[in-house]
Design a protein around this nucleic acid. Sequence first.
RNA 1: GUGGGCGUAGCUCAGGUGGUAGAGCGCCAGAUUGUGGCUCUGGUGGCCGCGGGUUCAAGUCCCGUCGCUCACCCCA
Length: 427
Amino acid sequence: MKNIQKIKGTQDILPDISAKWQYIEKTVRTIMRRYGYNEIRTPMFEVTDLFARGIGQLTDIVSKEMYTFLDRSKKSITLRPEGTAPVMRAYLENNLGEARPVQKLYYISPMFRQENPQAGRLRQFHQFGVECIGPQAPEADVETIMVGLDIYRELGLKNFTVKINSVGDAESRIAYKAQLQEFLKPSFAQLCPTCQQRYETNPMRILDCKNEACNALIMDAPRILDALTSDARAHFDKVLALLDQNEVTYEIDHRLVRGLDYYTYTAYEFIGGSLGAQNALGGGGRYDLLAEEIGAKKQTCAVGFAAGIERLIMAMESENLFPELQAGVDVFIATFGGATQDAGFKLAHDLRKQNISTLTELMGRSLKAQMREANRSGARFALILGEDELRTRRASLKNLANSDQKEVDLNQIAEEIKSQLQSNQAR
RNA sequence: GUGGGCGUAGCUCAGGUGGUAGAGCGCCAGAUUGUGGCUCUGGUGGCCGCGGGUUCAAGUCCCGUCGCUCACCCCA
């Protein structure tokens, strides 16, 4: 009989690691609040069509990476591979735009893509992200970038860069695609097979191909920034000006096009410097056309980003940024079985009612073993409760950090622990 | 989907040219009749991923298979 194990590309987040997750999540929520973003939680699965139409049929995500299945009523369901389309769906479905012209939303949630796992790539992974829906103003683009930066800064991350580009509006892109095809036409035969396909379907994707031959060809390709309409160009210039004015350092990356079809105007990425092959910490941009792709009657402007939590953890570990996160209980009650065990159990109940975190012995071990357990658990105090103590109504309270031990009246234990915790912040 | 590396104790890993297994850490216990961390002593713990083949004999060689991992594509 084979042991059951986790599905490829998934992870068990065990207690020592989950403390890191909580640390990051707490920071994310703090910064989101600082910028006035509110949390939205959408379902983990959606009708397949949402992603097929929203993200684009010929993106890698839709064409080969989605977890799609038929439910019992033969409806096609997909585990969400990314967060933006569901948020936009929820925005439209709930008429959030009618309630307020600007909706600033954030999420922290799992995503699912059926790819081969490797460092920094999982089948279930987690992202936090923001969507600023409504404004067309460049300020909104810049604000989302600053949210991401502030989160990384707050966590102490140093080794990363911001890359930015504009993929223009529909008109700019039609013009640019034609320029690019024109440019590549003579050397079509030298392109890699996938890029030969892209040449027709989505020539801009050739720009971020990593194949040597394609790379060489693209070096001198025309730049999309030179093909932008005056509106698109003005928007991009304003974004850059705002970044400059607000102390954001960035690099313009002419080959940054991003993998999802819905981007317009601004596209940007947070690139980690210590991550290995999968080095994108997060990415985002403006997507003014997504709403209509999934059925909105009128154009809905929006900009946002998504960032990987697993990759952030990797980056933070390589920069050694996690503080001591061990949170031991306040007190471990050691007993000797029988009446002392019952008394200890009841005492724990009383202490917990007073918000003192308490551990009791559950294995019936020796005092020595219980003391070892108390130490291992990180408890601040050990309380020793034996027959004598029960009789005299006084128990021994030992401070495990400095080994100070004193007799305390059973009715005074909570007060004693509280005052000691307060006075010396015990360890 | 493709390619490389790796599967030996709870964890990290040793195990020239084949002779049925070891270390460190952890865990348990003792030194200390009711007191942790340090030290010392002892102990627990392994169908050597699985299946087949070669051989008197396989952790070791061969084949297959599964799993993990890194990488390609692409992305978080």
